[in-house]
Design a protein around this nucleic acid. Structure first.
Lengths: 225, 225
DNA sequence: AATAAAACATGACATATATCATATTAAAAT
DNA sequence: ATTTTAATATGATATATGTCATGTTTTATT
């Protein structure tokens, strides 16, 4: 099992604020885990006894709505922590986490995190900043949901995925999502998401390589009103 | 000028985790301020040099969308802290705060807050919990925006205001909002908000006393699909 | 390889909501 | 008190999006 002190992943999240000693201690009680694409990491309502540090892969955080749709609220990738919100508020999770591809995560028990939050104020501040950032993102999403069209939201989603999660060597978006996933991010019917993507394709702003999407005209996508 | 150590308001927010000494120090450098209904407390893009502790009144936090509408993202009432997100992330504010009625606030400088975050881990944890809670609320709003009808969202908004901000002696909602405000919370056109409220009135689920709204049938409002 | 099951795609139509126009009423300003 | 302005209200119509039906393609299973 790898050692946290030597793990580069921590550089990308608030664990970087921990001291060497604290990391060694965490290393001793963490458990590594492989998760297959499609597997559920935790469910809505589940009590989390720790956080996951994502070493590889990507997952979606979603919440089931009364109308039966599973709204995707956020995506968590390699380098980020998963489940910190629920852990801190000491409530059961309000979201479900599902792997979008094969993942590798490390589970760090709650007791460790809380011990460090108590002793290491630099760590607390990093977690705070992280959460402040998430909150800002959420505010933006609320405004977009409320004020923009499905076409605009879908265009912005494609740009977001492109900018945040990167592309494969051939230029296709590295994250592979089903049309249903796109619909659940944007908050629309699957058919509508399909239609808009087909439209983008017809207009030449995107193309598809197998199941992968490639942005052909980023400027046009950004211009969509 | 009142003393923070003796102020009851702090019981309702994370300042309650501060020690007597810390409160005395804050008391020495805070400034009290009265804000008139309709006044802007801070604007989108403005850099905040502290947080506001709301002693009385209520304000809305909104963000201007590209389509010209001013989406209301959150409301902050008596007892709560205002501006903590921006302060912590050390970015300019992403939201504008506008007083919905006459307010009384205390401004606590950034340096004080950061000093206490550094020294008092109990305080940090309280702020963290606060923010975790806000984040959960935001997730819920995203799902509602994406999946529910204007009618449902407006019904839920009325219930939320009723439950969170209370009623006047005659049973009317204590928070007075314009139809435009309701539209901006729900994310719809003002005319649509007006229409739905008229509908509710016709159906007898709400009534109006002057400009105030009274919920007549809470159960019916909760049942709206 | 054949079959079953998902995922994707598209048309036809229904419905919710936005937009524009125009009253009406209430609040503010003179 | 009168005028002006803003807020509320409602109708007519346009448009975006949802829903249902059905077909095609891709992926999984036997």
């Amino acid at each position: 099992m790898g050692k946290c002190e030597q793990c580069i992943i921590k550089q990308f999240n608030s664990l970087k604020a921990l001291t060497k000693d604290e990391l060694v201690r965490i290393s001793g009680c963490k458990t590594s885990k492989k998760i297959k694409k499609g597997e559920i990491i935790f469910e809505e309502g589940e009590v989390l006894n720790g956080v996951y540090c994502v070493r590889d892969g990507i997952c979606k955080l979603s919440k089931l709505s009364e109308n039966g749709k599973d709204q995707i609220v956020k995506m968590v990738v390699k380098g980020q922590l998963l489940g910190q919100r629920s852990l801190i508020s000491e409530e059961s999770s309000n979201l479900q986490a599902t792997a979008l591809n094969d993942m590798e995560v490390c589970f760090i028990p709650k007791s460790e995190i809380f011990a460090d939050l108590q002793k290491n104020s630099k760590f607390s501040l990093e977690v705070l900043k992280d959460m402040a950032h998430d909150l800002r993102d959420s505010d933006d999403i609320i405004v977009n949901m409320a004020q923009k069209s499905v076409r605009q939201r879908l265009a912005e989603t494609l740009i977001y995925i492109h900018d945040s999660f990167g592309t494969n060597p051939d230029g296709t978006l590295s994250v592979l999502l089903s049309r249903e996933d796109y619909a659940n991010i944007v908050g629309t019917a699957t058919e509508s998401a399909i239609r808009v993507l087909s439209q983008f394709k017809k207009e030449g702003t995107i193309s598809t390589v197998g199941k992968y999407i490639k942005i052909e005209n980023l400027a046009a996508l950004k211009r969509i009103e």
